[in-house]
Structure formats: structure tokens, C-alpha cells
Simulated scan of single mutants.
Amino acid sequence: MRRLSTRSLLLAGLLATASVTALAAPRTVTDPQAPRALEAAGPVSVKWNDPKTFTELRNSTNRFEAERGNWVYQLAEYARRSAEKTLQPGQTLDITFVDIKRAGDFEPWHGPRASDIRIMRDIYPPRITLQYALKGADGQVLDQGEAALRDSGFLHGSTGMQSSSDPLRYEKKLIDDWVRRDLAKRIAAN
């Protein structure tokens, strides 16, 4: 049996650590390998424009923190689940996120220790612009349009059933409000 040298063991350890670190690296919404749509499943399809064009990233004072994570994908999954509950049998819905500005913003002038903290103030409301197409069982478009979602009183209202620790709770509430108030009326009218 051949003995491995200390040097070989050290090299193997470094390679293993590097591969684990690469897998654990935080994903960004601007990653070219990140999907731009949910996989087809069920009656609701959701896709989104390039997050680099979203107000959240274009106007951020901390672009690194703004693009970190998988929040666009999480909002798309949430929109799918929320809208599926409202559709009539046979109906389908196509949603495209055109623009997203998350609630709060970064205020780097508080110093380097606070530059990565999202500050919630009334002047930073959540905003989502989406396009949708509601189709009947025969594939005909029943309704389509663009919705500009915004909640200026997001800090003063209830976030409903969302967890107060969910970083996307205000954006999810925008989606819930749109599904309940606007989409449900359009579905009922058809």
C-alpha cells in the first residue's frame, strides 16, 4: 500500500475545501447561469426580465447586497402558488416580472458596519411591475395587461400570514393583493 505524502494530503484538502466553498458561494440574481423562468409545471408560468435591468439593482447604493441571493426565483415561485389557487379549471396564466424594487434600501452613509443592512422607511416602498395573460381552456386570451404594484403604506399595514422574519414579506404581500383584488376579479368576469 502506497503512503500519501503530507504535501499530497494538503493539496487534496485544499481542493476539497475549494470545491465546497464554490458550491456554498452565495448565488446572485444576475448570475448568467441563473434561470430566467420557472420550469413548466401547472397552469401558471412565470418568467422575468434580466434582473440587471430591475430598479432594485440599477438604483441600489449597495449593488453587491441587492443582487445577492435567489430572491427573484423565490418571488416567481410565490406568484405561481398564489395565482394557481385563483384560476378556474382549464385556465392558464402567464406572468412576466418586468421590474422589481424591493422594500427598503441600503444607506451606506451610516458607516461601513451598516452598509449591508436594508433600512425600512416609508420612502422605500416595494414595487413590482408585471405583465400577464389569462387564457381560457381553449387557449384563447381572456385578459392581458400590465400591472404596477406598489404599497406606499407597507410599514403601517399588516403583512398578513407572512412571517415577520421573511425578507420578501412586503413583496409577497404585493403579489397576494394583486391576485386577490385584481386577478380574481378578472377571472370572475370571464
Rank of each mutant, 00 (worst) to 15 (best):
T61G: 04
T61S: 14
E65C: 09
E65Y: 03
E67G: 07
E67R: 15
G69N: 02
G69I: 01
W71F: 02
V72C: 03
Y73Q: 08
Q74R: 08
Q74T: 02
L75P: 01
A76E: 04
E77M: 10
E77Q: 14
E77R: 07
E77S: 14
Y78A: 02
A79D: 05
R80K: 13
R81H: 01
S82Q: 15
A83Y: 07
A83G: 06
E84Y: 04
T86L: 10
Q88R: 07
P89Y: 05
P89M: 08
P89K: 13
G90D: 08
G90R: 01
Q91F: 01
T92V: 06
I95H: 02
I95S: 05
T96E: 13
F97P: 00
F97K: 15
D99Y: 12
R102M: 07
R102K: 11
R102H: 08
D105S: 13
F106Q: 10
F106G: 04
P108G: 00
W109A: 07
W109S: 08
H110F: 05
H110M: 09
H110T: 03
G111L: 11
G111I: 13
P112L: 15
P112R: 12
P112Y: 12
S115F: 03
S115G: 08
I117W: 01
I117R: 12
R121I: 06
D122H: 14
D122A: 14
Y124R: 06
P125R: 13
P126H: 03
I128R: 11
I128F: 14
T129V: 02
L130G: 09
Q131A: 14
Q131E: 15
A133M: 01
A133C: 00
L134G: 09
K135W: 01
G136N: 02
A137V: 01
A137S: 10
D138A: 11
D138R: 08
G139E: 05
G139D: 06
G139M: 05
G139R: 06
Q140T: 15
Q140G: 13
V141I: 15
Q144M: 04
Q144T: 11
Q144S: 10
G145C: 12
A148K: 12
S152K: 01
S152E: 14
L155Q: 11
G157N: 09
G157R: 15
S158T: 11
S158N: 14
T159G: 03
T159E: 06
M161A: 10
M161E: 00
M161K: 05
Q162R: 09
Q162A: 13
S163I: 04
S163F: 06
S165A: 15
D166Q: 05
P167D: 12
P167T: 02
P167F: 04
L168H: 01
Y170F: 10
K173A: 07
L174G: 09
L174W: 01
L174R: 00
D177R: 11
D177Q: 06
D177F: 04
W178T: 10
W178F: 01
R180K: 14
R180I: 15
R181I: 04
D182H: 07
D182T: 11
D182W: 00
L183G: 06
L183P: 05
A184D: 15
A184C: 00
A184S: 15
R186C: 10
I187C: 13
